[in-house]
Design a protein around this nucleic acid. Structure first.
Lengths: 241, 241
DNA sequence: GAGTTTTGATGTCTGCACACATCGGTGTCA
DNA sequence: TGACACCGATGTGTGCAGACATCAAAACTC
């Protein structure tokens, strides 16, 4: 039911708010939205409720539906992330995700070395080896697939559901990286070995080594991507008091 | 507007789903919910839409409203976190948050040292010094307040909106820690100094030192709390989707 | 077993009554 | 005359009730 009227209304408004077409402070009236989107009140109302729970709008009696500033948006919501990735803020969103990833993955590796179930450890080693092979052969699509699987397994193996939940966003950054031609046909040899190091350290339960190898991967990834988004402005969310 | 019928319905159902009272696979009918909560269909429908966007339920024609398993919940949503903190899974939720925090804060410190605006750096130093004073004097409530402010400023100063968004959850873990008597009257002397070290490193733009000092704080916090949740079962979210 | 019909739940639409924040007019007082 | 508090009018979201549309599971037919 991904194209119900209600869903399309959410998509329409969410996209327009996050793109900046509907700026913070802009006020919409439910009735106007009805004829603009050619749907009934109930559809609009349900859509507005969802956008409200995402922090994109707030409703006030006698005023209308007010668009909220980006600082109020829930930056972890998958829909918000998707809309930002489709907007001019795509670069900033990718940077945020990459920073989050580079903070989380070494911690996930450490936890996975302590907690991951045995079958997952074995699969991780297999995937790391397959990655190295695919990398040597220059099989780019196959490598991307394995790369996503590797990092998904790693996050899943941490046993932290918040880390695991980042799988989807990580996949997005990895595919985004290859789509934008930031990946050479033959991945860096050392990086391939670091993936194997992470997997083997987890397999033998060496948390320190797992973290260290993962950290190397992340630092290399960050330095590789950093020059593509240096011009992105940073937003500092005020600390409420 | 926090006690609209629609909001209360969300709260009621969200709490019951996350507490496990309404288990995964349980099927609810909109009509039944109307009688049960004594509200009209539109209220139920709007509430269900929001719960749907949080991944708590899905609707299927001819079947009803199905409760989804925890692996489908959005673990980063503030409401979901709040409901989990109020459930039997409180311990597991606190551990997840602490792990996330200990991964993110050192990275945030590193970024803050590179990007934070000057006034924020100064404020951070002030707060760190005030924290040390309050700690020495054994002013527990004052210390907690400053502690929350310190870590909020740190996350905000990173210039990463996802990091900044964790301020609220961090405050929750810190207050939870003191409420549960896990904080001594006089905080560890070294920990107090590490906070000052983080602030001063950020103030002078020394990213490496900022990360290192922050990492020390996080490692000590984790080792301090780890024995309180060793019995919490870990959940491994399958990578397939 | 494959194809068809029935059924029952959500999806969508509409008209109405109500709650309540804002605005503007009115009256009071200095 | 001007400043201020009050209060009612107005407009908008909120909640309700009922109808019909849609569509997929389930029952039925062959």
């Amino acid at each position: 039911m991904t194209s119900s009227l209600h869903h399309r209304a959410i998509e329409n408004l969410g996209t327009r708010i996050i793109s900046g077409e509907l700026p913070a402070g802009h006020i919409m009236l439910a009735e106007k939205l009805e004829d603009e989107l050619k749907v009934s009140r109930s559809v609009i109302r349900e859509a507005v409720r969802v956008l409200q729970s995402l922090g994109l709008v707030e409703t006030t009696k006698r005023v209308g539906i007010r668009v909220l500033p980006p600082s109020r948006w829930n930056p972890f919501d998958p829909q918000v992330i998707r809309w930002r990735l489709a907007s001019k803020a795509r670069g900033a969103q990718l940077r945020s995700l990459a920073e989050l990833r580079s903070a989380v993955e070494p911690a996930a590796a450490e936890l996975a070395a302590q907690n991951a179930p045995a079958p997952l450890r074995l699969e991780l080693v297999d995937v790391a080896h397959a990655m190295r092979d695919a990398g040597h052969r220059g099989e780019v699509p196959r490598f991307l697939e394995l790369d996503i699987q590797f990092h998904s397994l790693l996050l899943s193996g941490s046993g932290n559901e918040m880390f695991a939940n980042l799988m989807g966003q990580v996949a997005e950054t990895l595919t985004g990286r290859t789509v934008h031609g930031l990946m050479p046909d033959h991945p860096h040899e050392a990086a391939l070995q670091w993936h194997v190091d992470v997997a083997e350290a987890i397999a033998r339960g060496d948390a320190g080594a797992a973290r260290e190898a993962s950290d190397k991967i992340m630092r290399r990834t960050m330095s590789q991507m950093s020059d593509t988004w240096t011009e992105q402005p940073r937003v500092f969310i005020p600390v409420h008091r």
